[in-house]
Design a protein around this nucleic acid. Structure first.
Lengths: 112, 112
DNA sequence: CAAAGATACATAGTTTTCTTATGCATTGAT
DNA sequence: ATCAATGCATAAGAAAACTATGTATCTTTG
């Protein structure tokens, strides 16, 4: 696990990227996917994730469908058309930012 | 300039890295150095930088010396012994984090 | 079969971190 | 003489995430 401050500011980028690749995901699924893909290094907390999903929905970036699995509710999120554009923007902005930071911190890719 | 949320959580890492390489720097110098090294992409605000420097000093990570250039005061910051260790840790943690994010976001280095 | 753990949502209160705004003072350039 | 740059600092507010809590269902295990 990373010190929490590092992860700040990356949450929306992560959400948008996962939804871009998986079309349709629900909240809990996102937390598990991130946990798996990062080998437990990044564990999204629900207290951060759900408000963030709601905010993206309110902005019109995500749309939702609610389904019942037995009696249990499941809320699927999908990128809207605008969301697809925003998703691309966010990801490339983050990629650019990482390059800038890599240069600033003089991190040699081979040693990383 | 990046959307400000991206830069969050990286400030201390940047400070510690610059001090590791330059031995002794003052606040304003840090803002200019970051601006130069990133081609204006990252501009630290004084309202963020000074409180952060003070916090690091209070934690015993940085030590200070005040000098007068003419009548103008200049406060130099230097890594303490503990600071040197923490600096290494922070930088390698960040490097690790960037790799994790790169994998998570599936960013191809060639396209970045 | 009871309890514990996993699944699945949600929100309220608090903290951390940064932004915006402001203030003071000196120095250099036009 | 005035404006931009240098150089420090802090206070008020916003944004984002964390911690804690709540509800409820389903699955595994002793």
């Amino acid at each position: 696990m990373y010190s929490s401050e590092l992860i700040k500011g990356t949450l929306k980028t992560i959400i948008l990227k996962l939804l871009k690749e998986n079309k349709r995901m629900y909240g809990y699924e996102i937390t598990q996917k991130v946990k798996d893909l990062t080998g437990n290094k990044i564990q999204l907390t629900e207290g951060a994730l759900y408000p963030s999903l709601h905010a993206l929905e309110a902005e019109g970036i995500l749309t939702t469908e609610t389904e019942f699995i037995g009696k249990r509710v499941r809320k699927y999120y999908t990128l809207s058309e605008e969301g697809k554009i925003r998703s691309e923007e966010k990801i490339s902005e983050f990629a650019d930012f990482m390059n800038t930071m890599k240069a600033l911190l003089n991190i040699d890719p081979k040693t990383v």
